[in-house]
């Protein structure tokens, strides 16, 4: 039993170096840190390039910026601190996620404004149309039939 255990251990030990994980280009203690780093560098823009984040760009400045992100992460800086540091050097241009402030509130709120506004308009159209329906439904029957017939003649077939 003991021999078997030892053999097993030896096997693991021998297998160890062969399957040992390689180093990251930047070394992190945990997978979560590595992901946080990847996330950060994918959201920062290379100031020299056409339109690339510093993760994808090969420009020297991108490497400097990656180094700085890594250095600050090792020192325990938060995401905001890191982004703020780079913004202080290179300007707001380097963050792909625009800050929420007076200038950009319209931008950030836009999907909600547009969708809710649109839904309200649809609701309004429906409501008004229905009221009009109630008002003159009496004289409409004949007209309705005629309208439908015209529509049919023009090719509005009622299959799908």
């Amino acid at each position: 039993m003991r021999v078997a255990m030892l053999l097993l251990l030896a096997a693991f030990w021998l297998a160890g170096p062969a399957s040992a994980e390689v180093q990251e280009v930047y070394d992190f203690d945990t997978r979560a840190e590595e992901q946080r780093y990847q996330q950060l560098i994918s959201e920062l823009r290379c100031p020299k390039c056409q339109n690339q984040n510093i993760a994808d760009s090969n420009a020297p400045i991108s490497k400097d910026m990656r180094d700085q992100v890594y250095r600050m992460m090792r020192q325990g800086a938060s995401n905001e601190e890191i982004v703020d540091d780079l913004v202080a050097r290179f300007g707001e241009f380097v963050q792909y996620k625009p800050p929420v402030d007076k200038r950009t509130i319209v931008l950030w709120a836009f999907p909600a404004i547009a969708a809710i506004g649109g839904f309200l308009v649809v609701a309004g159209v429906l409501w008004r149309a229905r009221r009009r329906n109630e008002q003159d439904s009496a004289l409409s029957d004949d007209e309705k039939r005629r309208a439908e017939r015209i529509l049919k003649d023009q090719g509005g077939s009622s299959d799908r």
Binding site: P47, K48, I61, D64, Q68, R89, F90, G91
Partner: peptide
């Protein structure tokens, strides 16, 4: 090492 350059925001 481009230290001051980096602090100045030199990108090229």
């Amino acid at each position: 090492e481009g230290k001051l350059g980096f602090d100045l925001g030199v990108y090229g």
